[in-house]
Amino acid sequence: MLLVVDAGNTNVVFAVHDGEKWRGSWRISMQTQRTCDEYAVWLRTLLEIEGLSAVNVTHAVIGTVVPAALYHLRQLSRRYFDVEPLIASPRLDWGFRIALDNPGEVGVDRLLNGLAAHRMYGGPLIVIDFGTATTFDVVGEDGSYQGGVIAPGINLSVEALHSAAARLPRIGVGRPEGGLVIGKNTNAAMRSGVFWGYIGLVEGIVERIRREFGAPMKVLATGGLAPLFSEGTGVFEHIDSQLTINGLRFLAARNPEPDLSHDKDHSAEG
Protein backbone atom coordinates (compact mmCIF):
# COMPACT_ATOMS: atom_id res chain seq x y z
CA MET A 1 0.00 0.00 0.00
CA LEU A 2 1.25 3.47 -0.90
CA LEU A 3 1.43 6.25 1.69
CA VAL A 4 1.06 9.67 0.05
CA VAL A 5 1.96 12.90 1.85
CA ASP A 6 1.01 16.27 0.35
CA ALA A 7 2.47 18.99 2.58
CA GLY A 8 1.33 22.47 1.67
CA ASN A 9 1.68 25.85 3.32
CA THR A 10 -1.60 25.51 5.24
CA ASN A 11 -2.32 21.78 5.61
CA VAL A 12 -0.69 18.37 5.30
CA VAL A 13 -2.75 15.65 3.64
CA PHE A 14 -1.95 11.99 4.29
CA ALA A 15 -3.60 9.32 2.15
CA VAL A 16 -3.18 5.61 1.49
CA HIS A 17 -3.82 3.81 -1.80
CA ASP A 18 -4.03 0.03 -2.14
CA GLY A 19 -3.33 -0.08 -5.89
CA GLU A 20 -7.00 0.07 -6.82
CA LYS A 21 -8.56 2.77 -4.67
CA TRP A 22 -7.91 5.28 -1.92
CA ARG A 23 -8.42 3.61 1.46
CA GLY A 24 -8.30 6.79 3.52
CA SER A 25 -7.36 10.47 3.44
CA TRP A 26 -6.70 12.73 6.43
CA ARG A 27 -5.72 16.37 6.89
CA ILE A 28 -3.76 18.15 9.63
CA SER A 29 -2.60 21.76 9.90
CA MET A 30 0.92 22.54 8.73
CA GLN A 31 3.26 23.20 11.64
CA THR A 32 6.92 22.96 10.71
CA GLN A 33 7.90 22.20 14.32
CA ARG A 34 5.62 19.13 14.49
CA THR A 35 7.81 16.06 15.05
CA CYS A 36 7.67 12.70 13.32
CA ASP A 37 6.55 11.18 16.63
CA GLU A 38 3.55 13.51 16.80
CA TYR A 39 2.62 12.71 13.20
CA ALA A 40 2.96 8.99 13.95
CA VAL A 41 0.61 8.95 16.95
CA TRP A 42 -2.04 10.82 14.99
CA LEU A 43 -1.70 8.95 11.70
CA ARG A 44 -1.43 5.43 13.09
CA THR A 45 -4.59 5.99 15.12
CA LEU A 46 -6.46 7.05 11.99
CA LEU A 47 -5.16 4.04 10.08
CA GLU A 48 -6.44 1.75 12.82
CA ILE A 49 -9.91 3.31 12.57
CA GLU A 50 -9.95 2.23 8.91
CA GLY A 51 -8.82 -1.28 9.82
CA LEU A 52 -5.25 -0.67 8.60
CA SER A 53 -1.85 -0.59 10.25
CA ALA A 54 1.68 0.58 9.59
CA VAL A 55 2.71 -2.84 8.28
CA ASN A 56 0.30 -2.41 5.36
CA VAL A 57 2.42 0.48 4.03
CA THR A 58 5.08 -0.81 1.65
CA HIS A 59 6.18 2.43 -0.06
CA ALA A 60 5.72 6.16 0.33
CA VAL A 61 5.94 9.43 -1.59
CA ILE A 62 6.17 12.98 -0.23
CA GLY A 63 5.44 16.21 -2.05
CA THR A 64 6.00 19.49 -0.21
CA VAL A 65 6.47 23.19 -0.87
CA VAL A 66 7.62 23.68 2.75
CA PRO A 67 11.27 22.58 2.99
CA ALA A 68 11.32 22.93 6.79
CA ALA A 69 8.65 20.21 7.10
CA LEU A 70 10.50 17.63 5.03
CA TYR A 71 12.88 16.29 7.67
CA HIS A 72 10.18 15.11 10.09
CA LEU A 73 7.95 13.77 7.32
CA ARG A 74 10.83 11.74 5.97
CA GLN A 75 11.66 10.45 9.44
CA LEU A 76 8.01 9.50 9.92
CA SER A 77 8.22 7.25 6.87
CA ARG A 78 11.53 5.73 7.91
CA ARG A 79 10.93 5.15 11.61
CA TYR A 80 7.26 4.25 11.74
CA PHE A 81 6.64 2.65 8.33
CA ASP A 82 10.13 1.31 7.61
CA VAL A 83 10.18 2.66 4.05
CA GLU A 84 12.31 5.25 2.31
CA PRO A 85 10.00 7.85 0.76
CA LEU A 86 10.29 9.14 -2.77
CA ILE A 87 10.60 12.94 -2.56
CA ALA A 88 8.88 14.82 -5.39
CA SER A 89 11.21 17.23 -7.17
CA PRO A 90 11.63 18.61 -10.70
CA ARG A 91 14.63 16.27 -11.10
CA LEU A 92 12.48 13.13 -11.18
CA ASP A 93 10.98 11.47 -14.24
CA TRP A 94 7.65 13.26 -14.76
CA GLY A 95 6.97 11.92 -18.21
CA PHE A 96 6.60 15.39 -19.69
CA ARG A 97 8.67 18.45 -20.59
CA ILE A 98 8.84 21.37 -18.13
CA ALA A 99 8.90 24.30 -20.56
CA LEU A 100 10.15 26.98 -18.15
CA ASP A 101 13.17 29.28 -18.07
CA ASN A 102 14.29 27.55 -14.86
CA PRO A 103 12.48 24.22 -14.34
CA GLY A 104 14.02 23.78 -10.90
CA GLU A 105 12.13 26.72 -9.40
CA VAL A 106 8.59 25.50 -10.05
CA GLY A 107 6.63 24.24 -7.04
CA VAL A 108 6.15 20.49 -7.10
CA ASP A 109 2.48 20.91 -6.23
CA ARG A 110 1.96 22.60 -9.60
CA LEU A 111 3.76 19.83 -11.45
CA LEU A 112 1.77 17.21 -9.56
CA ASN A 113 -1.49 18.90 -10.50
CA GLY A 114 -0.41 19.06 -14.12
CA LEU A 115 0.63 15.39 -14.16
CA ALA A 116 -2.65 14.17 -12.68
CA ALA A 117 -4.81 16.53 -14.73
CA HIS A 118 -3.35 15.39 -18.04
CA ARG A 119 -3.46 11.70 -17.09
CA MET A 120 -7.09 11.91 -16.00
CA TYR A 121 -8.62 14.55 -18.27
CA GLY A 122 -6.30 15.02 -21.26
CA GLY A 123 -5.05 18.34 -22.60
CA PRO A 124 -4.58 21.10 -23.28
CA LEU A 125 -5.97 22.43 -20.04
CA ILE A 126 -5.78 25.01 -17.29
CA VAL A 127 -5.56 23.81 -13.70
CA ILE A 128 -6.74 26.29 -11.06
CA ASP A 129 -5.74 25.46 -7.48
CA PHE A 130 -7.43 27.44 -4.71
CA GLY A 131 -4.81 27.06 -2.00
CA THR A 132 -2.70 29.44 0.07
CA ALA A 133 -2.02 31.02 -3.31
CA THR A 134 -4.43 30.80 -6.22
CA THR A 135 -2.48 29.25 -9.09
CA PHE A 136 -3.30 28.78 -12.75
CA ASP A 137 -1.20 26.13 -14.49
CA VAL A 138 -1.12 25.54 -18.21
CA VAL A 139 -0.68 22.01 -19.55
CA GLY A 140 -0.12 21.36 -23.24
CA GLU A 141 -1.89 18.78 -25.35
CA ASP A 142 1.14 16.48 -24.97
CA GLY A 143 1.17 16.92 -21.18
CA SER A 144 4.04 19.41 -21.12
CA TYR A 145 4.01 21.97 -18.32
CA GLN A 146 3.88 25.39 -19.98
CA GLY A 147 3.90 27.73 -16.97
CA GLY A 148 1.11 29.72 -15.44
CA VAL A 149 -0.03 32.45 -13.06
CA ILE A 150 0.29 32.89 -9.29
CA ALA A 151 -2.16 35.18 -7.48
CA PRO A 152 -2.76 35.76 -3.75
CA GLY A 153 -5.01 33.17 -2.17
CA ILE A 154 -8.44 34.31 -1.07
CA ASN A 155 -7.80 33.80 2.65
CA LEU A 156 -4.61 35.86 2.39
CA SER A 157 -6.58 38.62 0.71
CA VAL A 158 -9.30 38.57 3.36
CA GLU A 159 -6.74 38.73 6.17
CA ALA A 160 -4.84 41.55 4.46
CA LEU A 161 -8.04 43.56 4.03
CA HIS A 162 -8.88 43.22 7.72
CA SER A 163 -5.33 43.93 8.89
CA ALA A 164 -4.73 46.98 6.74
CA ALA A 165 -8.07 48.73 7.31
CA ALA A 166 -8.83 49.43 10.97
CA ARG A 167 -12.60 49.64 10.57
CA LEU A 168 -13.10 46.60 8.38
CA PRO A 169 -14.02 43.39 10.23
CA ARG A 170 -12.60 39.93 9.62
CA ILE A 171 -15.11 38.05 7.47
CA GLY A 172 -15.65 34.47 6.44
CA VAL A 173 -15.35 33.49 2.81
CA GLY A 174 -18.67 32.68 1.19
CA ARG A 175 -21.09 33.54 -1.56
CA PRO A 176 -23.06 36.72 -0.77
CA GLU A 177 -26.63 36.08 0.33
CA GLY A 178 -28.86 35.79 -2.69
CA GLY A 179 -25.83 36.07 -4.96
CA LEU A 180 -26.16 39.86 -4.87
CA VAL A 181 -23.26 42.10 -5.84
CA ILE A 182 -24.38 45.32 -4.11
CA GLY A 183 -23.90 44.97 -0.36
CA LYS A 184 -26.22 46.84 1.99
CA ASN A 185 -23.79 46.77 4.93
CA THR A 186 -20.04 46.57 5.43
CA ASN A 187 -19.94 42.80 5.93
CA ALA A 188 -22.06 42.15 2.84
CA ALA A 189 -20.01 44.58 0.77
CA MET A 190 -16.78 42.86 1.79
CA ARG A 191 -18.16 39.38 1.09
CA SER A 192 -19.29 40.56 -2.32
CA GLY A 193 -15.94 42.13 -3.12
CA VAL A 194 -14.04 39.00 -2.12
CA PHE A 195 -16.34 36.48 -3.79
CA TRP A 196 -17.20 38.31 -7.01
CA GLY A 197 -13.70 39.80 -7.16
CA TYR A 198 -12.21 36.30 -7.29
CA ILE A 199 -14.80 35.18 -9.81
CA GLY A 200 -13.71 38.09 -11.98
CA LEU A 201 -10.06 37.17 -11.43
CA VAL A 202 -10.67 33.55 -12.44
CA GLU A 203 -12.77 34.33 -15.51
CA GLY A 204 -10.44 37.10 -16.66
CA ILE A 205 -7.22 35.12 -16.34
CA VAL A 206 -8.75 32.01 -17.95
CA GLU A 207 -9.91 34.10 -20.90
CA ARG A 208 -6.47 35.71 -21.32
CA ILE A 209 -4.66 32.34 -21.07
CA ARG A 210 -6.94 30.83 -23.71
CA ARG A 211 -6.40 33.79 -26.01
CA GLU A 212 -2.62 33.66 -25.55
CA PHE A 213 -2.48 29.87 -25.91
CA GLY A 214 -4.50 30.05 -29.12
CA ALA A 215 -6.48 26.82 -28.77
CA PRO A 216 -9.53 25.50 -26.89
CA MET A 217 -8.62 24.46 -23.35
CA LYS A 218 -10.39 22.54 -20.61
CA VAL A 219 -10.51 24.14 -17.17
CA LEU A 220 -10.06 22.03 -14.05
CA ALA A 221 -10.35 23.32 -10.47
CA THR A 222 -8.98 21.86 -7.25
CA GLY A 223 -8.48 23.00 -3.67
CA GLY A 224 -10.91 23.41 -0.80
CA LEU A 225 -12.63 26.51 -2.17
CA ALA A 226 -13.19 25.21 -5.70
CA PRO A 227 -16.79 24.05 -5.01
CA LEU A 228 -17.63 27.46 -3.52
CA PHE A 229 -16.43 29.37 -6.56
CA SER A 230 -18.16 26.97 -8.91
CA GLU A 231 -21.40 28.49 -7.59
CA GLY A 232 -20.51 31.80 -9.21
CA THR A 233 -19.07 30.77 -12.57
CA GLY A 234 -19.50 28.17 -15.26
CA VAL A 235 -15.86 28.25 -16.31
CA PHE A 236 -14.90 24.99 -14.51
CA GLU A 237 -15.46 21.84 -16.52
CA HIS A 238 -14.27 19.57 -13.71
CA ILE A 239 -13.63 19.87 -9.96
CA ASP A 240 -11.23 17.32 -8.50
CA SER A 241 -10.34 17.49 -4.80
CA GLN A 242 -7.87 14.59 -5.09
CA LEU A 243 -5.79 15.97 -7.93
CA THR A 244 -2.53 16.51 -6.04
CA ILE A 245 -2.54 13.17 -4.22
CA ASN A 246 -3.28 11.41 -7.51
CA GLY A 247 -0.32 13.26 -8.99
CA LEU A 248 1.87 11.87 -6.21
CA ARG A 249 0.52 8.38 -6.89
CA PHE A 250 1.31 8.66 -10.62
CA LEU A 251 4.77 10.09 -9.90
CA ALA A 252 5.59 7.21 -7.53
CA ALA A 253 4.58 4.72 -10.22
CA ARG A 254 6.96 6.33 -12.74
CA ASN A 255 10.06 6.41 -10.56
CA PRO A 256 12.17 3.74 -8.81
CA GLU A 257 11.49 3.24 -5.13
CA PRO A 258 14.42 4.60 -3.08
CA ASP A 259 16.44 2.26 -0.89
CA LEU A 260 15.86 2.64 2.83
CA SER A 261 18.61 4.74 4.41
CA HIS A 262 20.94 2.84 6.70
CA ASP A 263 21.24 5.94 8.88
CA LYS A 264 17.53 6.49 9.31
CA ASP A 265 17.66 8.79 12.32
CA HIS A 266 20.49 11.10 11.38
CA SER A 267 20.69 11.37 7.60
CA ALA A 268 20.72 14.89 6.20
CA GLU A 269 17.75 16.64 4.70
CA GLY A 270 17.67 17.10 0.95
Rank of each mutant, 00 (worst) to 15 (best):
Thr134Pro: 08
Gly63Ile: 04
Thr64Lys: 03
Arg97His: 12
Gly143Glu: 10
Met30Trp: 00
Met30Ile: 03
Leu70Ser: 13
Glu105Asn: 14
Leu92Met: 11
Asp137Phe: 06
Val41Pro: 14
Ser89Lys: 09
Gly51Arg: 02
Glu50Gln: 15
Thr135Tyr: 01
Ala133Pro: 05
Ala40Thr: 09
His118Ala: 09
Pro85Trp: 02
Gly140His: 10
Ile87Glu: 01
Leu43Trp: 07
Leu43Pro: 02
Glu38Cys: 06
Val65Ser: 04
Leu47Ser: 02
Val138Arg: 03
Leu112Ile: 00
Tyr80Phe: 14
Val57Asn: 05
Ala117Pro: 13
Ile98Phe: 04
Asp101Tyr: 06
Arg44Phe: 00
Pro85Gln: 05
Gln75Trp: 06
Ala68Met: 13
Ala68Tyr: 04
Cys36His: 15
Arg110Glu: 03
Leu112Ala: 06
Asp82Phe: 01
Gly143Asp: 08
Ala69Arg: 01
Val55Glu: 13
Phe136Asp: 05
Gln146Trp: 11
Pro67Ser: 11
Gln75Val: 05
Leu125Gln: 13
Asp93Arg: 12
Val61Ala: 05
Gly147Ala: 11
Ala54Lys: 03
Ser144Glu: 12
Arg110Asp: 05
Val55Phe: 09
Gln31Phe: 07
Ala69Pro: 04
Tyr39Trp: 13
Arg97Leu: 07
Ala116Phe: 02
Leu115Ala: 10
Tyr39Pro: 03
Asp101Ile: 02
Asp37Ala: 15
Leu73Pro: 03
Ala40Lys: 04
Ala116Tyr: 00
Ile62Pro: 00
Ala60Lys: 04
Val83His: 02
Asp101Leu: 09
Arg97Lys: 15
Asn102Val: 13
Ser89Glu: 07
Leu73Ser: 07
Val66Phe: 04
Leu70Gly: 11
Gly63Leu: 01
Ala88Leu: 03
Thr32Ala: 15
Ile62Gln: 03
Leu100Tyr: 05
Ile128Val: 15
Ala60Gln: 02
Gln75Met: 12
Ala117Asp: 12
Leu100Met: 09
Thr58Ala: 11
Thr134Trp: 07
Glu38Phe: 08
Ala68Gly: 10
Leu46Ile: 05
Leu52Pro: 00
Leu86Cys: 02
Asp101Gln: 14
Asn102Trp: 01
Gly143Asn: 07
Thr32Met: 08
Val139Tyr: 08
Val127Ala: 13
Leu111Phe: 02
Tyr39Ile: 03
Ser144Lys: 00
His118Gln: 13
Asn113Glu: 04
Tyr71Glu: 15
Asp109Ile: 00
Val41Leu: 14
Cys36Gln: 11
Ile49Ala: 13
Tyr121Glu: 05
Gly107Glu: 06
Gly107Tyr: 06
Gly147Cys: 06
Ala68Pro: 09
